[in-house]
Amino acid sequence: MQSPDEETLVERARRGDPDAFEALVVSYQPLAFRTAFVIAGDAADAEEAAQDAFVKAHRALGRFRSGEPFRPWLLTIVANEARNRRRSRGRRAALALRAADPGAPGEDPEAAALASERRKRLLTAVERLRDDDREVLACRYFLDLSEEETAAALGIARGTVKSRTHRALGRLQEELA
């Protein structure tokens, strides 16, 4: 569901208003970059993918159906661009945890160390999953996309998102066992 403001911006952009499209870019560039980064695994690739996706989205605005949500439509383009870059690179760089992640104030340092260790194991397990399993988990949990948005980003049916998520979580459990 998009806000009336966003709907107005999209309509203005469709009519050729460059300021309206720029406002959409500014609003979506963090999500576009993060999505591209999670899929491509590389900051430079993610930046290029986000930029190309916005340019392509602008070109395709004429085909965008009025009243439809803009966010999943854009995510489809961003994810495609990111996947293309990942394919052309031949491999995807692994995601990493933030360095020297500080624990919460007053947190037991031993508990913090254990939590950090647990996260490392979890991320390693995620990275070992097949691309399609990893992508569906990344969209749902790392990017916090809805099932509908995940379906749009990955170009699959909403039902497939459900089943693939279920399967990926099962495989992840096995990896961690």
Binding site: F21, E22, A43, Q51, D101, Y141, F142
Partner: peptide, 25 residues
């Protein structure tokens, strides 16, 4: 495990999004 994945997302090393609006325009 879903909760753990959500927690992991917070700790991922994702660079800040570079501003692309100018280049796109």
């Amino acid at each position: 495990i879903e909760l753990e994945l959500r927690d992991l997302a917070v700790h991922l090393d994702v660079p800040p999004a570079p501003p692309v609006a100018g280049a796109v325009r």
